[in-house]
């Protein structure tokens, strides 16, 4: 197997493994649209990274965190429904990113690579940084898992029971931002949310505990990455979309499978 395929598989599986538990949380908290908005903002991060000559992963994470905090603050200020706010932020940051990229002199950007992913072009250095990031995210998730679950159920109850709710909210946004920065390379900005929610929804059919669903989502995501990468080599199709199609196929398969016990 060629090195670039191996790197693609490793990087993709790494991202899928962390997207699993985080995606489950996004599904339970009904925050799919929130994840979508943040990932749109990632293109602005890319543009600003080029503008200020900063590493793109760093600039993407920063922009995601800023947009998330802006959103939280804005929700308290305005009399506009939060889905409208999310829509405004998602599309204006995406558009702003495109405008800034167009204005940059002397930079020619392969836009498709950012919008739909370019996993086959992942370098060894990117792979190692990515895997390090994945290990950090996983450790943080494992450490905060019970508290994150408690907050998902009822924020005020958790607070009375001694959970530091504000810190958890910030930690959750940071985790989502890191995953978006990492997943951008794999499936691209426009498809990141699918990597979060489709494997989690698939795993729901088999899971009886929150942990089973989280791990199941990682497994389904990793399976989709393998299917997508191999499929794209076999039929010469774009890898990012192939991974998402594979994830969707797994979801459809899981929902038509008859299960003895469903909870």
């Amino acid at each position: 197997m060629s090195d670039f395929i191996l790197r693609a598989l490793l990087g993709g599986i790494g991202v899928a493994v962390i997207a699993g538990p985080l995606g489950a949380l996004v599904v339970w908290r009904r925050m799919a649209y929130f994840g979508d908005s943040l990932s749109h903002a990632a293109l602005l991060g890319v543009a600003l990274g080029f503008l200020f000559h900063v590493d793109l992963s760093v600039s993407v994470m920063l922009v995601c965190v800023v947009v998330a905090l802006l959103l939280v603050w804005w929700q308290g200020q305005q009399r506009i429904a939060s889905d409208t706010l999310l829509g405004i932020l998602a599309h204006s940051t995406l558009a702003l990113g495109l405008v800034v990229l167009a204005l940059l002199e002397g930079v020619r950007v392969d836009l498709m690579a950012y919008l739909f992913g370019d996993i086959l072009a992942i370098s060894s250095q990117e792979l190692w940084w990515g895997l390090l990031g994945a290990v950090l995210v996983l450790s943080l998730l494992a450490w905060l898992w019970s508290s994150l679950l408690a907050v998902t159920l009822h924020e005020e109850l958790a607070q009375v029971e001694g959970v530091p709710v504000t810190w958890l909210r910030i930690a959750f946004v940071l985790l989502v931002a890191v995953v978006i920065a990492l997943a951008m390379k794999v499936v691209g900005i426009l498809l990141i949310t699918s990597l979060l929610i489709i494997p989690a929804a698939t795993a729901r059919h088999f899971a009886r505990t929150p942990e089973q669903m989280a791990v199941g989502a990682s497994v389904c995501g990793a399976l989709a990455v393998v299917m997508g990468v191999l499929g794209s080599l076999q039929w010469d199709i774009p890898t990012g979309p192939a991974i998402v199609v594979a994830a969707a196929l797994l979801f459809i398969l899981s929902s038509v499978l008859p299960l003895r016990q469903r909870i």
């Binding site: 339970w28 679950l149 009822h154 001694g162 729901r204 929150p210 089973q212 669903m213």
Partner: peptide, 28 residues
Amino acid sequence: RIGYMPQRLHIDASLPLSVERFLRLGLR
């Protein structure tokens, strides 16, 4: 030490959670 029973607690259908696990979450 305060024990609190909130008014509305909605658990999304997508979250597989047994009563035992729910109770365990309250214990720090």
